[in-house]
Design a protein around this nucleic acid. Structure first.
Lengths: 154, 154
DNA sequence: CAACGATATTTGTATGTGCAAACAATATTT
DNA sequence: AAATATTGTTTGCACATACAAATATCGTTG
């Protein structure tokens, strides 16, 4: 909290400021972390979601959008858009099977996946440098816990 | 981590999976928290950023975009867009002063601000219900710390 | 087996956000 | 005092994401 925020906190309830703070810092953290990711994956013309998605497709050829939606914590429609982009870059291809869609890596996709993995490693190193290795684990665990709690029915 | 992710983790380096996990869960958390906020502020046709911005403008009439950018952890261009929307809703007005722009609340803006504050309270209550009161504080502190660390020059 | 409900995916539309460039005004240097 | 650099704000463009509606297919029930 900066001095301005503290001043505001005195006028209103501290409790609500905390919520505001959590909301903002959670988004700010996500943006800051994403920035590091995008910096690494930008050279492939990807964002972190594409990068993770490609790894999943290589690891599980024939994976469906629904499964990806679950794994990536993203809406099916978002998955479609991400797959489109990856398809346009010739890293994956789609195959219709009934009402489902199976997603397979192309040769190019398989070829580039190791580089993507290396980029993930670099991202990890950079997090640790900035946040501290133990903090990364703690933070991740706490965030995962909170996210799970929020994901459950209220 | 679900069973699929665990399987993947065994194939690649665990370390890099942790980074992936942090990146994703940070974004997932931000989305989940934002969803609660938007639910409360949606009735005003606002997102949480508008809501917080309006509170800041009421608290500090004549605040500039730069200052808001600092407080809200958002890019100046984003601030411009948010102010435009708030202006269009007649909650704030802009006044040019040299190269700066001063933002003032309108009467409507001042009138609605208490309702917004109440919405912030409700958001806080809902967080506590789901995540747990003590966890909210811990999580917020840890996130703020990490965000600050990431904001500093590397 | 035909009809209807459930599930999987895609498309249309909208939004918050950021980057880079364009302005506009102030500050600094020569 | 003129030229140049710096600072503050806005605009153009792009992107990840979500929601709601439209399709398409599958499963189930009458």
């Amino acid at each position: 909290m900066n001095s301005q925020e503290v001043a505001v906190a005195e006028e209103t309830k501290l409790n609500s400021r905390y919520s505001a703070c959590l909301l903002f810092s959670a988004n700010a953290l996500a943006r800051a972390i994403t920035a590091i990711g995008d910096e690494e994956f930008g050279r492939f013309g990807m964002c972190y979601s594409h990068a993770y998605m490609l790894c999943e497709v290589v690891a599980q050829p024939g994976i469906t959008p629904s499964e990806l939606s679950e794994t990536l914590c993203l809406t099916p429609s978002t998955i479609t858009r991400l797959v489109e982009k990856l398809e346009q870059k010739r890293f994956v291809r789609r195959e219709s099977e009934g009402k489902r869609t199976l997603i397979y890596p192309t040769a190019e996709g398989e070829a580039i996946q190791p580089e993507i993995s290396q980029a993930w490693d670099r991202v990890g190193v950079r997090y640790s440098q900035v946040i501290g290795e133990t903090n990364v684990c703690q933070l991740t665990q706490q965030i995962v816990k909170a996210t799970k709690a929020l994901g459950e029915p209220v």
